[in-house]
Design a protein around this nucleic acid. Structure first.
Lengths: 367, 367
DNA sequence: CTGAAAGCGCTTACAG
DNA sequence: CTGAAAGCGCTTACAG
């Protein structure tokens, strides 16, 4: 029987403020060693169930909670995932962060935020990332410097790029169907009777914008058409607005605009309606990319090629589980399938529109 | 002179993958003790500048980065701030997270994300929060259970509530001018000629919604008027849409709606325009609360009482600095001043509109 | 099944 | 200014 019954009740109150209860204290109260306490809190360790019960009771009494920080020093596993995400004002990334944090709970992991190092450099600061012993680093909409890639690789920290390609072999990637999406949108618009198709690019340096454009343009070319006009919106509200003004001020304005993401598409729509007084989709069609389901953008009923956030999250978890288990394992390059969500901002083709999961989607038939 | 010149160049490559360089290794290379290395990386510690230079060079060579996790075990300071934020789809909170993360960089602190414990319980899980040794806990749009409040207080972990009041004395709070905002909006709408004022509440359990409503209603009463109608939108897009439909389907619909935040106001506007075909502000006015400056909501040009995110962030930093320095210090209850931003969604009064910081704001004169 | 001891990578009095 | 030693709160072989 434990001889340390003395002061059990008052222990919780009498302990110094600012100092958490330790495993040793719990052990003393339960009459066991610190090791036993550790075992009681580690699933799958051999411990007599009676002992464990006693320990758990003592822990409960003292308000003990294992110190993860101390634990990680021995286990070399912090259960912390570093996350660098730039444009949190873009609902796609906001949703990604939220859902990812939820999904990670199942495996007891948490997200540590690394903001951009500076205005000009969207990457997180290297030293900061390395100083916290993150189990993995997820970069969403951020480029990866060779230095950071190399050092993470050297330390066995898995790096996961979302919506970015990487020249580094040591990095896993997850992306939507950027090229296919671009192609599908071109096909959809032409099938809907449009002939003067324009593109508003995102950041020129990003593979997302480049791939979406490549798909869009190559489909047109393969079908004997050419891109009617092109502007750059830098994935920004203001730049997209400027790009739109420029497109509509041309001698021959486009009859359809593909904006490289929903965030810009909404800005484009606002300008078209308010500054030019045109009607969508009667006068001009607008298609975006992301397929945001709810939130503020829902009111726009955008026609858009989707990148389901849940698909990204599921793949992040998959990769994390496998890479953390086997850091030297194969790097994965996964694709998240999307589809063309038929909203109210683009004229529709006569054929190919079906309902799926309560949304209208377009099934292109043949090239 | 250091005798450990051997293998300096290859050290970075030959070290085991998955194992970071330690202070001891750096010390060996620089020919000093581990303590000296520690001092070299701690600003303000006494160390000969030559020694420090040598150490820094060795560290650079090996790619050494102090392990913050290990450090925190001794310093009892993790430089990690726990953050629980519910509705990241609400741009106000998304902006808050982003700007807060940036502001914390200056003091070398980082945000660790704690998602809601479950669908029904918006609070973060207590054990998770306590297991990471966070220096402080910021709760944005999340209630605080008495258990969590009590334990954080016992452990000397400062708790900071954003946009929530708390019955617990041990907690600091930061909030916008909810009551004043409600009053100002009522005054503004009446001055603009409206007579049938309706309110769409947020979550009934929140002090933000209650205070905004209290201000709104009390101003009306003080001026011999009464609230025309009231619905609940629960700070949700869908519920706000339902609330709007209900308001507009009344025998005598309102001529102005105050939605308890911008997020709902936008949903309200969408329903009014699209489902009822009414014109804003000619047929009906809509006012929100938050004063979101950019992002997706910018296109709506909402009339709204502002809660500047920068004001919240600055106060979080202030409180954190003082509380972390002196955990037992006074709890603060700060208010972030806002103003009525005059947008395009509500008919304007003839008087009192001035330009400030490139935005039109309304200066109410007298009650 | 259980405990004593060593160790994770750091910081911090304490001597020198 | 510098180093040896103890310690932060845990986990993990190693004996028993």
């Amino acid at each position: 029987m434990p001889q340390a019954k003395i002061g059990a009740g008052m222990a919780a109150k009498s302990r110094k403020a600012g100092r958490a209860v330790t495993a040793a204290q719990v052990g003393r109260l339960a009459g066991v060693s610190q090791s036993a306490v550790s075992r009681a809190f580690t699933p799958g360790r051999s411990i007599a169930s009676k002992t464990r019960e006693r320990i758990l009771k003592a822990a409960e009494q003292l308000g003990y909670q294992p110190n993860f920080i101390a634990r990680s020093l021995m286990t070399r596993r912090s259960n912390i995932i570093g996350l660098a995400v730039g444009p949190l004002d873009n609902p796609f990334y906001a949703a990604l962060v939220k859902e990812l944090a939820h999904a990670l709970r199942a495996s007891g992991r948490h997200l540590l935020f690394f903001p951009a190092a500076s205005q000009t450099n969207p990457d997180p600061a290297i030293d900061e990332v390395l100083s916290y012993q993150v189990d993995a680093l997820v970069l969403a909409s951020t480029t990866l410097s060779s230095k950071l890639a190399e050092r993470c690789d050297g330390l066995g920290i898995p790096v996961l790029l979302i919506n970015r390609l990487s020249p580094f072999a040591s990095v896993s990637t997850i992306a939507g169907q950027n090229r296919l999406g671009g192609e599908t949108i071109a096909h959809f618009l032409v099938a809907g009777g449009h002939r003067r198709l324009a593109f508003i690019a995102g950041l020129e340096s990003t593979s997302t914008s480049r791939d979406r454009e490549a798909g869009f343009v190559s489909w047109l070319q393969a079908n004997g058409m050419a891109l009617h006009a092109r502007e750059v919106g830098n994935y920004s509200i203001d730049d997209a607005a400027r790009a739109t003004r420029s497109l509509l001020s041309r001698g021959e304005p486009p009859d359809a605009i593909f904006a490289a993401n929903d965030f810009m598409a909404i800005s484009t729509i606002n300008v078209i309606r308010k500054e030019f007084g045109l009607s969508i989709p009667d006068d001009i069609s607008v298609v975006g990319f992301d397929g945001l389901e709810d939130g503020l953008s829902a009111g726009y009923e955008l026609t858009s090629f989707s990148q389901p956030v849940s698909g990204f999250v599921a793949r992040v978890i998959t990769i994390l589980d496998s890479l953390i288990a086997e850091p030297a394992g194969m790097k994965a390059h996964l694709e998240v399938p999307g589809e063309l969500i038929v909203g109210a901002t683009a004229r529709r083709p006569c054929h190919g529109i079906v309902e799926r999961n309560r949304r209208l989607v377009w099934e292109s038939v043949g090239a």
